[in-house]
Amino acid sequence: KLLSSIEQACDICRLKKLKCSKEKPKCAKCLKNNWECRYSPKTKRSPLTRAHLTEVESRLERLE
């Protein structure tokens, strides 16, 4: 599967780190437990900047 097509777990399953069936409108866990089942939009991760990478590398060197 391509990364862009990976389905996201519902908010509660993601928060509780449960295996989500990803069914809509309610996944199996939410249906069974009568929880409100919501699927928040995916958040875009910002790409690493060179400055951040350099900072992490220098912190790693100090720890070694």
Score class of each variant (00 low, 15 high):
E36M: 11
C20I: 07
K32Y: 09
E55N: 11
T49Y: 07
L2A: 13
L63D: 02
K24D: 11
I6S: 11
T43N: 08
K26I: 14
C27P: 06
K17F: 00
K44D: 06
A51W: 01
K42Q: 11
S58Y: 14
A9F: 01
K42P: 15
P41L: 04
R45L: 02
L63H: 05
N33E: 09
C30L: 01
L2H: 14
A9P: 04
S58G: 13
K44W: 07
R62S: 11
I12T: 11
P47Q: 01
R38A: 13
K22R: 10
N33F: 09
R14P: 06
N34L: 13
W35A: 14
P25G: 11
L48W: 09
E7I: 09
S46P: 10
E61N: 10
E64G: 05
E23L: 09
C30A: 05
K1N: 15
D11A: 01
L15S: 11
K29I: 08
E61Y: 13
W35M: 12
P41M: 08
R14L: 05
E57N: 01
A9K: 03
W35E: 08
E57A: 01
V56M: 06
E23V: 13
R50F: 01
W35R: 13
T49V: 08
K1F: 15
L60M: 12
K19C: 07
T54N: 08
C13W: 07
S5L: 11
S46I: 02
R38M: 15
R38G: 12
I12M: 09
Q8W: 11
P47S: 04
K24M: 15
T54D: 09
T54V: 05
E64K: 08
C30Y: 06
L15P: 02
R14N: 01
L63Y: 04
S40H: 00
P47M: 06
W35L: 14
Y39H: 08
R45A: 03
K42N: 10
S21H: 04
L15G: 11
L3I: 10
S5R: 11
E7S: 09
A51S: 08
C37S: 06
R62N: 07
R14F: 02
T49F: 04
C13Y: 07
K32V: 11
C20V: 01
S46G: 03
L53V: 14
L2E: 15
A9T: 00
K19M: 01
C37D: 08
L31P: 05
L3Y: 12
K24T: 15
Y39E: 06
C37Q: 09
R38S: 12
K19Y: 02
L31G: 14
R45F: 03
C10E: 13
K29C: 08
K44E: 04
D11Q: 11
E61T: 13
R14M: 00
R38H: 11
C27I: 03
L3G: 12
S4N: 08
S4I: 12
L53F: 01
A9Q: 06
I6T: 11
R59Q: 12
V56T: 07
L53C: 10
R62V: 15
R45Q: 08
K44Y: 08
L48V: 00
K29T: 09
E57M: 02
T43A: 12
K22S: 05
A28R: 15
R59F: 02
L2N: 14
L48K: 07
K16P: 02
K17G: 00
S40L: 04
R45H: 02
E64W: 06
L63M: 13
A51P: 04
S5H: 11
E64N: 02
P41F: 01
S40M: 02
T43M: 12
K17V: 04
R62T: 13
H52G: 01
C13F: 01
P41Y: 05
S46R: 02
T49D: 01
E36L: 12
L3K: 03
C20R: 03
Q8V: 05
C30V: 05
E23K: 11
S46K: 04
L2F: 08
Q8D: 05
E23R: 08
A28P: 02
C10Y: 04
S5F: 09
L18P: 10
S40Y: 08
E36T: 14
S4L: 12
K24W: 15
S46N: 03
R62W: 05
K32F: 09
A51N: 14
A9N: 03
A28I: 14
C13G: 03
S40N: 03
H52L: 04
R38F: 13
T54M: 08
L18S: 09
I12K: 09
L18F: 00
L60W: 01
S40T: 08
T54E: 09
